[in-house]
Design a binder for these strands. Structure first.
Lengths: 227, 227
DNA sequence: ACTCGCATACTTGTATGCTAGTCGCCTAGG
DNA sequence: CCTAGGCGACTAGCATACAAGTATGCGAGT
């Protein structure tokens, strides 16, 4: 699924609604469990119900909406099993991406890792969570770029989207972020030295860290969960 | 993405059209590049254009249709880069599934592997390609079941769907099938003995075998490809 | 007081007609 | 004969209207 559509693809109304609602969901402006109706959204965006329906269907496919025919459509609650599934798939992909990255490693392609890591440390120092989040994503994207497996990272992102909106609830402390930066440094080091086994372990540890976050959020906001 | 919808989910007309067209595409009754129009399908199924639109959108999401606004909608051609991407993702998932299966191995859970393998050999003996194909899929599914990672296999299936329709064009010979059965035996053996490294290698070899098939089909049916 | 049943106000699914954009043929001009 | 332009016949996107199913609240009956 390369999504290499070279179509400039004019932006349709359905796209507009999709982007808008998507943004509201992942930013938690629309809370899990909130009911939204096609007509309501249609009026807000000044379009008819049809484009809204299309947007809703896409969001349903992304597991962000739950459409209950003849009843209501609501923002999907978090699902611990669903999150675990998404994390598992993400892990499987990132492990293989990392192996490919080691095989395809070159100092030129790898340039920028250090700059990214320094920027991460800087963001942590400033306590800028938004910047750190962006740099975190960029770090993982860079690995995929080195491996020339961008398409696989797209799927990682898709899975991550399901988990990311939950992390908005987590006010990550500086200590937690520093820990993640250390993970990144270790991963980067393993990639550079070609230590496949070490990279494997480091990635597994790194991606397992959100488990605690999820558990904590589940304790604090049980209403946002369906299981 | 657990897809554990406990909704019985009444079958809507859009579902009907989706299933029908999906089947026609993967069975190559609708050839790659064939143009199909909403109205045409709508008339054939005796429904209006709206459900057809919805079904088309879903198929577009599965990379099976290519919707060109105001021009036409056609069955997507094969894409070698797309197939490579799908195979890569499948490989990443199956590798991790196999590792989980080794960790979760138990003789009870693993029961049936031998029966499946024998049935595969039998199907090959009879030259029954359809049966072999089903058993092949069941074999891989069984690994996921042992690992209790069915959800990940669902994604494998989704990726496989993109590739499977191309294989309808390949009249696999008995020798080729026997080779695959041998692969399966080797994989099964590694799982049983807990040989993670061997399993990894066997899976990589196994999944790499379709490359030749793809190349051959690309030579024989270049019109079905977009690259 | 409690329960059952129905009317009503929702919801999503479907049908139909209209709009706008694209391709191709056909004709007029060189 | 060849080329350029326009007209018509498509397409998908959208808007509107209607159908069908579900939750809810009120009221009558027990």
């Amino acid at each position: 699924m390369p999504a290499l559509d070279l179509t400039p693809k004019r932006r349709t109304n359905a796209d507009l609604v999709f982007d808008g609602v998507y943004g509201q969901i992942v930013s938690l402006q629309l809370l899990p469990g909130a009911k939204i109706s096609e007509t309501e959204i249609a009026e807000r965006y000044g379009v008819s119900r049809q484009p809204v329906r299309e947007a809703f269907n896409r969001l349903d496919g992304l597991q962000l909406l739950q459409i209950q025919p003849q009843r209501a459509t609501q923002v999907r609650r978090f699902s611990r099993s669903g999150i675990a599934a998404a994390r598992y798939i993400r892990l499987a992909l990132e492990l293989e991406i990392a192996r490919s990255a080691i095989a395809a490693w070159s100092e030129e392609a790898a340039a920028g890792f250090d700059a990214n890591l320094d920027a991460q440390a800087d963001a942590v120092g400033r306590g800028d969570r938004a910047a750190f989040h962006a740099l975190d994503e960029a770090f993982h994207a860079r690995i995929a770029d080195v491996a020339d497996k961008r398409f696989a990272f797209e799927m990682v992102l898709q899975k991550k989207a399901q988990v990311d909106r939950i992390c908005v609830l987590s006010l990550k402390d500086a200590a937690g972020m520093r820990c993640l930066v250390e993970d990144h440094r270790r991963i980067s080091g393993c990639l550079r030295s070609g230590d496949a086994a070490g990279c494997d372990a480091a990635l597994r540890l790194h991606l397992s860290r959100i488990e605690d976050t999820i558990a904590r959020i589940h304790r604090d906001y049980p209403d946002y969960f369906e299981d």
